[in-house]
Nucleic acid binder design. Structure first.
Lengths: 214, 214, 214, 214
DNA sequence: GATGAATGAGACTTCATTCAT
DNA sequence: GATGAATGAAGTCTCATTCAT
């Protein structure tokens, strides 16, 4: 999508289908979305979907991969690239997550939490590879959080184990996504963000520039 | 189930169907399980299912209610009844959750996290009532956790807002369930439990009596 | 079909579906007939077909079994029951086959040869069990023909091996069916019948009472 | 194939596609093989298939024609060219058929009988032209066999009608192919060959040089 | 209170075919 | 002369649901 000319027509079609499927799975779950609907939303014939994906399960794989790399690059790596201080990095991550959720809520009237967790919980038994792939993605997330914890401990002089703090930060983000979606309140993200900042010893760091709570 | 003689035959059949459906939905998601399969597992005719439930969605409601009340009674209320100190209550809650997950893993080779979240994420859009019902359940959980936070703050003299801590504890439990299932590791529950105890100011409280980390 | 009251409703439905499928496969081959068409001809819903048969292949099995037992009982056993002399038995078998073909030709304008061979040739690779089942059926046919050959040799004093003659008679019947269908001429059956009678040493035995060669 | 330099590239491509389709139809039937598979086996693009053939049915015609001329040239004409005596010609025909089947069995583990009959039986209703074309082919076969019968009668002094014997020989060959394939035994070909030789009055003529009965 | 039998709608998937390059 | 991309129609099979007994 960001390298228009470098993709062949087929690659573009494929990527477009993945994006559409991803969005639909996110909102309505894997089994509640039919291949017909995916094709319709993507504006292609159903047979075209099957030209690029062996079956519906294959689409789930592609979606999980798509959503594993993309958001990490866009949220975590971006925050690390832009900021140096651990608390600012953490704040940036939650800020992005919160804003994403807020916009989603404003434009859709709904809000869909983490695009991977739902799919992985749903398909965990049926397609263990999907769960494994998303577990790998969250390991990567945990690495980012552990780095933040380590840097923060360096500054605060805390002797807490950064690995453990990293895991807690990861779980807190899971919980933030889940409770945001269940309560349909983006603010839950901010609550979690503040708790996360407190956890690494920077309770005062603001997440939003102003008090623009939604 | 705990009041055997007070249920009519029909009520028992109904309860049995709900229990079977709950277990299946938990493991394989709502849409991946057919009414045929529920009937088969329950050992009744499919038409019998429809005698007790208007349709499949109705079953989802029953399951959510079943899983909202039961675990709270069994885990949270039990812990409050048995212990007085907030840290012991919190430790008991995580102990039970951990042991449940461990046993599940040992006997099934798999482990299914929270029986409500998956269903609610899956059906959030399609059946908002389900999401609302489970949101109510988690509000109740949050009340329990807030009580613990308040009692703990009383002892430690912390001036943190118990409402906020309660919410964080709730989100952490969400995250613990999610990461346990995704990683297929019951130990994630212990990690979260320790983080939770640290959060309320009792980092030394043991969750398990010994080091029986399965 | 011949024991109306002894079959449950389900068994009748099942038998009816098999009969319809058999007729369609015979005329148009297995792959050229859709389950929809079978259901329509049988006057039942497609899902009903799948209530009685695991899949379309399962229907092929049922059809092969249906056509293995029935015609042998009806043609071979009947001829053996009615006649004693080997040449009369052989003549009766060919007479029945010829008349069946003639009637088929008269009423349908077409003529479909052996109801098993086509299916078995078509599915030989894809479903070896079907081929094996029909091979067993033809072994049974060969046993009948071998018996005729033995009885005939006893009378004529021929020292030809009845097993070999039995096999030749079987192959000749295969060929008669094939060439009748390909040429759309029931008379081919008579040609083969006369050759068969000559083979066992009774070239003069008439197949039809009169010269009613359609 | 035997005039390499005289074919244009297009003609070669076309012939190659026919050969591949023929082989696939033979093994797996017409309807069980998709145009995709034919293209893949032939190593060409699917659209290329449609450059040479109007549709799939057209391919069936080409295949029937291909298999009508070729084997007759190769088996019957060759035998007539090489031998003079009718019994030697007949033995040569069955020898070739037997060896072809044996090799097929040895190399494929399976054995596919006559490459025309299956297709014709399958498509008899749907594409009468196919059946007619193959009927013509078998008329030609019958002419060869009738010639053998006439020559043999001349030698033996038999007064049997060569036309009738020719037909019987043709049907026997049909039956030999069918029973070879159904039983997956090339030896059935030899059985039929011996019966055929007996039929024309030369029961002692050997089909194979030695006793190399695979 | 329970069940065997049946069904319409819709799921996933593949087919033969065409078009633009 | 050949191909990658696309499609409408049709295929097999399953679903949630109902009815008669």
């Amino acid at each position: 999508m960001n390298r228009p000319a470098l993709l062949t027509k087929g690659e573009r079609t494929r990527a477009h289908i993945v994006a559409c499927a991803s969005s639909l799975f996110w909102r309505r779950s894997f089994h509640a979305v039919s291949v017909d609907q995916i094709a319709e939303v993507a504006g292609v014939n159903k047979a075209t979907v099957y030209r690029y994906f062996a079956d519906k399960r294959d689409l789930a794989h592609a979606v999980i991969r798509h959503n594993g790399v993309t958001p990490i690059e866009m949220i975590f790596a971006a925050s690390f690239a832009q900021y140096e201080k651990p608390e600012e990095r953490l704040a940036a991550i939650y800020r992005t997550a919160f804003l994403t959720h807020s916009e989603m809520h404003a434009s859709n009237g709904d809000l869909f939490g983490c695009p991977i967790v739902g799919l992985s919980l749903e398909l965990g038994q049926e397609m263990p590879e999907v769960r494994e792939e998303s577990a790998r993605t969250f390991d990567e997330v945990e690495r980012y959080f552990t780095q933040i914890a380590k840097d923060a401990a360096h500054i605060t002089g805390s002797d807490a184990d950064p690995a453990i703090t990293g895991r807690t930060l990861t779980q807190l983000m899971h919980g933030a996504n889940a409770s945001s979606r269940l309560a349909v309140e983006a603010d839950r993200m901010l609550d979690a963000g503040r708790a996360a900042l407190a956890l690494i010893g920077f309770p005062e760091t603001p997440i939003l520039v102003e008090d623009q709570t939604t």
